Simulated scan of single mutants.
Amino acid sequence: MYGLKKPFLVGHQEFAALYGVEAQMVGQWLAPGRRVLDPATAIVVSGVRYWPLGFACRFGKTTSRPKLLNVRYKERLIKEQGEGWEADLGDELPPIVGQHEIIELFHLSSQGTLATRIAQGSFPHEDWLLSGSRLWLLDTVIEAVPELRASARSVPWEVDATVEAALRAGTYDGPGSVVLTRGRHARKGV
Rank of each mutant, 00 (worst) to 15 (best):
D127G: 13
H12Q: 15
A17S: 14
A16L: 06
S109N: 14
E83W: 10
V178P: 00
T41F: 07
H125N: 12
R187E: 14
A16D: 03
P52N: 06
A144F: 11
P7A: 05
F106K: 00
R65W: 07
M1W: 08
V141T: 07
P156W: 09
L68P: 06
R35M: 15
V36I: 15
V179I: 15
K67G: 07
V190L: 15
G176T: 02
Y2L: 09
A40P: 12
I43K: 01
G98F: 03
V48N: 00
D160K: 03
V21Y: 04
S122P: 02
E143C: 09
I102R: 00
E126L: 13
D127T: 14
L108I: 04
S131K: 05
G170A: 12
A56G: 14
A169T: 08
K67Q: 15
G20S: 08
V155H: 07
S109F: 10
A40Q: 15
E80G: 05
P66V: 03
G170K: 13
A16N: 05
E86A: 05
W157R: 05
S151H: 12
M25L: 14
G176F: 00
R58N: 14
R117Q: 14
D139S: 15
P175F: 09
Y19W: 10
R168F: 04
S122L: 12
G132F: 08
A161D: 10
A87Y: 01
D173P: 03
L137K: 15
R76W: 14
